[in-house]
Amino acid sequence: MSIRYNQKREAEKQPRLTGGHRMCAGCGAGIVVSGVLRALEPEDRAVVVNATGCVEVSTFMYPYTAYMDSFIHSAFENAAATCSGVEAAYNALKRRGKVDGTVKFITFGGDGGTYDIGFQSLSGAMERGHDMVYVCYDNEAYMNTGVQRSSSTPRFSRTTTSPVGSVQPGKRQQKKDLTEILVAHNIPYVAQTAPIGNFRDLHLKSHKAIYTAGPCFLNILAPCPRGWDYPAAKLADIIKLAVDSCVWPLFEVEEGQWRVTYTPKKKLPVEDYLRSQGRFRHMFQPGNEWMIEEAQQQIDQKWERLLERAGG
């Protein structure tokens, strides 16, 4: 299904994530969550599910829910299974004539709750084929507990459990390619996006994910001013750099067909992106040039592979 995107019309919709939540000033996750929910058609209801994490503790601190829709949080590691339970109940009650109308099921988990502790639950839910969307707001570390490394944290990044020391260059391991792992589940729709430009990319992918039958997965970059160490106001610049340097490519995989949805006019060096954040600061110290070289190589390889998959 393709829809026209009209940014002004979308901005007029009543937000389904309200103000008054306790996410930090300038939090990327808040922008991601409200952006995804904006793709819901106003007449449709939704049940929103959260994994424990920044978003969850700040959007439903008793008695204040920031959701206009029904909401359930159960634990850190089971958001996808939780969403499948709601969807199963919907099917059962609908069959018995006890609920009517369209209800959509949308789960939000951070990278900790998605790449790591909730990974099994996510894989199981996707395999079972529930009609749901799982959204990972990827801020590349355990931010709620104070910036600990996750399997999503990029190599060399400084976190509190991958500190930079005299013998350690920040995180040693590469970032796990979760989006690709989700593609391997052969589900109808997988996409990677970010709140960028006029939100067209994020909106259309969210809409497609919500309104495609079956399990869909969105991986959305959600900068964290605290954890990434940049001035909160600079969020849009950081995202633009991530996308234009191909650190975070925008693409989608629909029924197995890969499509790059944005190709930078001029691919920026990864250095530009790395320089924008304190978590990579040590990479610019004399003697650490190899880190930047290696990071560039990695990014180039992955980008080339993506272009190949998408048919050049």
Binding site: I72, N78, T82, S84, A88, Q120, S121
Partner: peptide, 24 residues
């Protein structure tokens, strides 16, 4: 019944919690 053959008991209880909360 919606028979949800999950990948662990952890998910089995998670499904039950969510389904019961959903009104089932």
């Amino acid at each position: 019944t919606e028979y949800v053959a999950v990948e662990s008991e952890h998910s089995s209880m998670s499904v039950c919690i969510a389904a019961q909360a959903a009104g089932a």
